[in-house]
């Protein structure tokens, strides 16, 4: 267990979205983590907040890492939905940096809010000024450290902006409870707070039905 905590502390600085998320999740909550990676968030929540839950993953190396971290992980493709979980099964359903990579983000969002009372979602904001200027001035699909892929090999097939996401929520009666829009270093400074769609690089939302 000490190992997990240590690993999280070493790992968390790069993934400030995860430490933000863990602040939002109360003690002893039940959590489903979609695309849980090596299980760092769940291991941290289990060790520090008594959280119980499951991660869903399809990458074999990540599955092995979860096994070794003592994190419950189920091999399951998010594109096949979550119909193996009942309504309101979890307090929170979390999906970090995967919304843009699924076949139907709208459907997975609806599924998250069916099986969970609240959903926490993070995604790269395609409306960030650097992305906009890359396309505007270079005339090419943006490539950056947050979006390191070429147009032909990117897993990010459904990129959206902060405004797109919020419009979608409004149209589908999804209530936004909390929003953090942060920079690459994940600090939440003034500019992203004032003009999130222009200056936020990573968007983090807590939403409910």
């Amino acid at each position: 267990m000490a190992n997990d905590v240590q690993r999280i502390r070493e790992w968390m600085p790069e993934r400030n979205d995860l430490s933000l998320i863990s602040d939002w999740i109360p003690r002893n909550a039940s959590v489903l983590d979609l695309g849980c990676g090596d299980g760092a968030l769940l291991a941290y929540l289990k060790a520090n907040k008594g959280v119980r839950g499951y991660g869903l993953e399809i990458d074999q190396d990540n599955l092995a890492a979860c096994f070794e971290n003592g994190v419950n992980v189920i091999e399951q493709d998010l594109d096949n939905g979550l119909d193996n979980f009942q309504n309101d099964r979890f307090d929170y359903v979390v999906m970090t940096q995967a919304l843009q990579a699924v076949l139907r983000p709208d459907r997975i969002l609806a599924e998250m809010l069916r099986v969970g009372r609240e959903a926490i979602i993070t995604f790269p904001n395609f409306g960030h000024w650097r992305v906009r200027s890359y396309l505007a001035f270079k005339g090419r699909m943006p490539v950056s450290s947050a979006l390191p892929y070429e147009w032909y090999d990117t897993p990010n097939i459904h990129l959206c902006t902060v405004n797109d996401f919020e419009t979608h929520c409004r149209k589908n009666d999804i209530r936004i409870i909390q929003r953090e829009v942060v920079n690459r270093d994940h600090s939440s400074s003034t500019l992203p707070r004032l003009l999130p769609n222009l200056f936020g690089e990573i968007a983090i939302y807590r939403v409910t039905r």
Partner: peptide, 13 residues
């Protein structure tokens, strides 16, 4: 699925 329904610790590959 039965194990997750009753909240047991389970991993699946």
């Amino acid at each position: 699925n039965a194990l997750t329904h009753v909240g047991r610790d389970v991993s699946y590959a």
